[in-house]
Simulated assay, not measured.
Amino acid sequence: MRTFIAIDTGQKVAEIVDIVVEKLKRMGFKASWVPGSNAHLTLAFLNEVKDEKVELIASMLSKRLRGFPTFTFSTGKLGFFRHKNLPRVIWIGVKSSPILNNLFRETRVALESLGFNVDENFHAHITVGRMKFSPPYWRKLIETVEIEEVIVPVSEVSLFKSELSPEGAKYTKLFSCSFEGGLIKYDS
């Protein structure tokens, strides 16, 4: 199954994502939009993982992150990743946080100990949409979108399953690894 490790960014960020998507649609952008209910901050994308290895990943991550301090991060401005001078992905930025970067490193170490290759370049963001069409002057339009800053509390990371369909990706939380040491398994 396609899996990834992420921080669930909560209800307020979900509402902001939905508002941003509506603004971008009205401006003429076309994309595979992320519903606010799917909003998250990815720490590592694992791609295809055998079902029997998923619980091992969650267990190793839970052990590695036990005792990690609870912290917060805040959302920033709207941004994008480009391809051939067009936006490929539009996202909500996350203000730089040393402790968030440390969480990424700890997650990477846990996954690499299980044989996964994790990209060392961590650019914290919350994806809003994967672009299919951008209107003329797209950069100026993106710059006009104001986003309310949200403070996101973080006390756990989760292991998600991603299922692709014509309607878009469906994310299912499989495990949550609490920094206090608990591992919760969800029915999938």
Rank of each mutant, 00 (worst) to 15 (best):
V34H: 00
N38D: 09
A39T: 05
W33N: 00
E55L: 05
F45V: 13
E52A: 08
E55K: 12
S62V: 06
L43M: 07
G36V: 01
G36R: 00
A58V: 11
A58P: 13
N38K: 13
D51V: 14
V49N: 14
K53S: 14
I57N: 05
K53A: 15
T42E: 06
L56H: 12
E52R: 06
F45W: 09
A39R: 04
N47P: 08
L43C: 02
L46C: 04
S62D: 03
S62G: 09
M60H: 10
A39Q: 02
H40P: 01
K50P: 02
H40E: 01
L61V: 14
S37K: 08
S37R: 09
G36Q: 05
K63H: 05
A44G: 14
G36E: 03
N47E: 14
V54D: 08
T42R: 05
E55Y: 11
H40N: 00
A39N: 09
I57L: 07
L43H: 03
K50G: 06
K50T: 03
A58K: 06
K63Q: 13
D51Q: 15
I57H: 03
W33V: 01
A39K: 10
I57Y: 04
L43D: 00
L61C: 11
K53T: 15
F45Q: 06
S37C: 02
V49C: 12
S62N: 06
A39F: 01
K53P: 15
E55T: 07
E52H: 12
A58M: 13
K50Y: 06
L56A: 14
L56V: 14
S62M: 06
S59A: 10
E52V: 11
L61E: 07
L46I: 05
G36N: 01
E55W: 10
W33C: 00
S37W: 01
P35Y: 08
L41E: 02
L41N: 03
A44K: 06
P35L: 02
S62Q: 03
S37T: 02
M60I: 10
S62P: 10
K50E: 14
T42A: 05
I57D: 05
L43Y: 02
D51I: 10
V34P: 00
H40D: 00
L56G: 15
K50C: 09
W33Q: 00
L43K: 03
L43W: 03
P35G: 04
H40V: 02
V49E: 12
G36T: 04
P35S: 10
L43R: 01
V49Q: 10
N38G: 04
L56Y: 09
T42K: 07
D51N: 13
K50Q: 12
V54L: 15
L56M: 12
F45C: 05
K53I: 14
F45A: 06
A44M: 12
N47Y: 12
S59R: 11
N47L: 11
N47T: 07
D51S: 13
L43G: 00
L46W: 07
G36K: 04
T42Y: 03
K63V: 08
T42D: 03
L41W: 00
M60W: 01
V49A: 13
V54E: 12
L56I: 13
N38M: 08
L41A: 12
V34T: 05
K50D: 04
L41H: 02
V34W: 00
A58T: 11
N38A: 09
E48N: 15
N38V: 10
